[in-house]
Design a protein around this nucleic acid. Structure first.
Length: 420
DNA sequence: TCTGGGGTCCTAGGACCC
DNA sequence: TCTGGGGTCCTAGGACCC
């Protein structure tokens, strides 16, 4: 039987802020989303104050000030870099690693069973704390779904920060008390329907009839049951397989009504998406552009729409993608609305090596690739947006704001920490 | 003034083909 | 005048995840 570990950083964004501000240790910390809109990360102290995940900042501002909560805008560049450092340490300790999200990774420990896994994981945890400065929790078990549960236990019911769910007696006890809505893949809707069937705990679900539940729900539910039984159905996806779609969108930092501003915004997002596309060495065949007003403002007139463009020859050229995106935007733009958000989705991605040559466009395509490679290399060397497309705008009045962002200590020379 | 952003997978249903 | 059955592909929408 295989053994999977799930390594998960504790309160990742809040912990990243603490690395560079040690005085935050033991104090409540929260991190906000774009535009300082919602609370998206909380330290344990902030959780204890009852501040919920995803709550709008303005509703909690007073309460947080009263409790001296330290509030930061999100600093994705910093978090991305810190994440990379954690993943590097993990990769040094286990060759089979799947980076599942910015703060989580699965490890396949099959080759390590000759030693005491618990000690190996304790040591790994200690090294990440010492070398990167971040606290992590590690759970391990025979399937990924069980490893998720083990990780929950490590985080909430273990002093060491490591939890072993391989032992059948321990597993039986944990599953019998583990609520279904906390199981990986069971969200709000599914847990309501499962409870109607008198299934309340992970043990109840494990003991249920997989075929019957498959007909009630879907093949996903059948897999979850197998995983709970210790039969691995969800394998480790070690290859960076490349995304199947790329989205780039943001809410605006102010009210936007003019087409010109929307065009700048969509050009900016299109350029970002195209960069990501080239990074994973893909081309897109199909893009969707959407825009909409603020659905929370029920009293102002609402409008939302989307438009599609197909490329005859798949592309990763920012110029083509920006042009197509602007064309889509003009098709769906209507005057006299206050817009809140626009964005672009690149779909039907394929490797850029699979080229459908066209006798006439071949040379043009080679030029395009060279041009884009040059732009990317300049921006990689000297920093993002060293050169950019005029269509993206210069002043960008529509840009989201981050009023409480900390310096990007690890990725910008100008923002390097100063020691006095 | 102020409510995030970026993903995946599955299913149902329509269009189309033979 | 009548109109089956099987298959594929695509899209929209729902549910979930971090």
């Amino acid at each position: 039987m295989s053994i999977f570990a799930l390594v998960d950083c504790n309160n990742f964004y809040a912990s990243c802020e603490r690395v560079f501000k040690p005085f935050l240790e033991g104090k409540p910390v929260v991190v906000l989303s774009n535009n300082d809109g919602c609370i998206i990360a909380r330290s344990n102290e902030a959780k204890k104050l009852g501040i919920p995940m995803g709550a709008p900042f303005f509703k909690w501002e007073f309460e947080m000030r009263r409790n001296k909560v330290h509030v930061y805008s999100s600093n994705y560049e910093l978090y991305g870099d810190m994440s990379q450092r954690v993943m590097d340490v993990l990769a040094m300790h286990c060759p089979d690693i799947e980076i599942y999200s910015i703060d989580e990774a699965f490890l396949l420990l099959d080759g390590f069973t000759w030693q005491d896994l618990n000690n190996y994981m304790l040591d790994l945890r200690q090294k990440i704390k010492q070398w990167v400065g971040l606290p992590v929790s590690i759970g391990f078990a025979h399937t990924k779904t069980l490893a998720k549960i083990a990780n929950y236990m490590a985080k909430n019911h273990s002093d060491s920060g490591v939890f072993d769910l391989c032992d059948s007696k321990v597993r039986e006890k944990v599953l019998s008390e583990f609520p279904i809505e906390k199981i990986w893949g069971i969200g709000r809707q599914l847990s309501i329907r499962l409870k109607d069937l008198n299934i309340h705990t992970a043990r109840d679900l494990r003991n249920a009839d997989p075929k019957r539940l498959r007909s009630h729900f879907s093949v996903v539910m059948e897999k979850i049951i197998s995983e709970l039984r210790g039969k691995s159905c969800i394998s480790l996806e070690t290859l960076a397989s490349g995304r199947k779609q790329i989205i780039s969108s943001r809410s605006f930092g102010k009210q936007v009504t003019k087409l010109e501003e929307l065009e700048e915004a969509i050009s900016t997002y299109a350029a970002t998406a195209a960069e990501k596309l080239r990074e994973q060495e893909s081309v897109t065949r199909n893009i969707t552009v959407f825009l909409h007003t603020n659905t929370f403002r029920e009293n102002s007139p609402q409008y939302g729409n989307h438009a599609n463009h197909k490329f005859i020859i798949p592309t990763a050229d920012t110029r083509q993608i920006v042009t197509a995106a602007k064309k889509c935007l003009r098709n769906i733009y209507r005057k006299n609305y206050i817009y809140h958000k626009t964005g672009i989705i690149l779909q039907n991605l394929m490797p850029d090596t699979v080229e459908q040559y066209d006798l006439l466009t071949f040379p043009e395509r080679q030029q395009s690739k060279k041009m884009m490679a040059l732009v990317d290399s300049i921006n990689n060397l000297y920093g993002k947006d060293t050169i950019f497309y005029c269509a993206q705008g210069i002043e960008k009045p529509w840009l989201a704001h981050f009023n409480k962002r900390t310096p990007r200590y690890t990725t910008r020379w100008q923002e390097l920490m100063k020691v006095k």
